[in-house]
Design a protein around this nucleic acid. Sequence first.
RNA 1: GCGGCAAUAGCUCAGCUGGAUAGAGCAACGGUCUUCUAAACCGUAGGUCGAGAGUUCGAAUCUCUCUUGCCGCACCA
Length: 563
Amino acid sequence: MDYKQVVADALAPALTGTLSAEDIYAKIERPKDVNKGDYAFPAFTLAKTFKKAPQQIATDLVKQIDTSQFDKVEVVGPYLNFFLDKAAFSAQILGQVLTEGADYGQNQSGKNGNVPIDMSSPNIAKPISMGHLRSTVIGNSIAEILKKNGYHPIKDNHLGDWGTQFGKLITAYLKWGNEDDVKKDPITNLVKYYVKFHKEDVAHPELDDEAREWFKKLEDGDKQAQQLWSWFREESLKAFKAIYDKLGVQFDTYNGEAFYNDKMQAVVDELKAKGLLQESQGAQVVNLEKYDLNPALILKSDGASLYITRDIATAMYREKTYHPAMNLYVVGSEQIYYFKQLKAVLTEMGLPSAKNLHHIPFGLITVNGKKLSTRSGRIILLDAVLDDAIEMAQKQIAEKNPDLPNKAEVAQQVGVGAIIFGDLKNERMNSIDFNLAEQLKFEGETGPYVQYAHARAESILRKASGVDVPTSGAKISDPEAWETLKALADFPDVVVEALKEFEPSDVAKYAIRLAKSFNKYYAHSKILAEDAEKTARLALVKSVSTVLKEALRLLGVQAPDEM
RNA sequence: GCGGCAAUAGCUCAGCUGGAUAGAGCAACGGUCUUCUAAACCGUAGGUCGAGAGUUCGAAUCUCUCUUGCCGCACCA
């Protein structure tokens, strides 16, 4: 139920002819201070039309409205403060959460439309770093949020599995590599070969020619080249999947760059057919002047294709395969300009999904203020960070809950949860200077804090087993529960808002707010006390547990029942 | 040089479509476990919201200028 609307409806009769229903609704706000009620209407805007002081207007207004449906309506200066009927509110919201369960907050606005999401996208034969974490967890969370809004997301890992570096890799492997090492630890060893190649080719430039030849062979379908390439790819993918498993992220497709190799010519043909290609300094470009953008370079002067050619092919493929409702790209903010160009080219081509293409950028992860880079050695391995976090969680469990039965499982859930939550709780666009100690904090506004609130709720429910939790009519009068009840009621709006902004952090902040209000309630009220409201309180606890778990799920974070 | 993003407490960040004394977490200091998990709760202290101008009854929030930092600016992805 929309309680803001209830307030607006109450005000409407007194303001007919002055403000439209929509205007009234838009003016209503939530006081920051809890003591000033649940909703407030400021009378400033009416001062001109009524030619009276706002304070006076507020005083007059309150006399004209039906206040019976509220606990009270107060005039404080120029504000009308509305206090909702707590008993009715609690019965309504708890009934709804308990009836709907995990479906609470679900809406169908997406009409099951397909939404491919370009995300994670590590490069074959290179390690997954903290930089990939952001794309992976943001994309994964947006996928869950999409589902909650009735869309059908398709998580696509657009692997970097093609390019001249494979010529170098093959050359290096044949010279210095061996099969067992690659099988044992593919990423480390493949990177080693790659780095060695770059060291050696300074003194032996003929290596570059060899590499070029190998890449040419690969493109021409040479058997040995193909075999090595697909082997490197498989071994890398195995290593990647181990990390994705740890993170709890699955993909629907792994349509990497190689997948589009045979779809590139069609792009060039179509651009030509539509008269969009122009020659410029020997290269083929699409002029984007009318979008106030630099020309997009489609073919190099040597005729080779580029990243954007591949992305156009990808967009065309997705259009044909999915008829997407939206087309999302979770890629770093350094590519904002590039995606403007891509969208402009696709718009020029008349691709229907171009207008629903959204680049979802995020801030850079840096170390000591500097950009990560494999070559310079400034790299933070995601796997190592996850392991550190899991180990830290193990220590915490040993200290705080040594009798916990499934320690290893919970340590993983808590450790990984801390890392994911830590990444998602801040606005996407904030850049992050990596700090391991900061990532491993389990106190305050963190993933474990939310998980802990959930585990406490579950603990109470276990202790109360045998008591029937009512799914309707649960009224709570305890004022300590009020913030928690209101937070529960906000969840459906958060689901909508988070999608609108593509902001998982909205959900993370919400989870903290709900957990915090519940922890406070928990500290001040004895839930299992034997009195008339006990079952109502249990209804609240059950509702909190349900919604916390669901909010964490939308972030890709697990919620253990005990920790 | 042009464009984008950012600047709020010692540190990390919230602050919704402009609204009532600018809020959290961490760190500091003090308090709360014989009672539902203290990974928690309560309190104290801490800010000329980068600077300046403008719009407005009202600006951390909108506009402009400036400063600082990061990112990008066709043959990488």
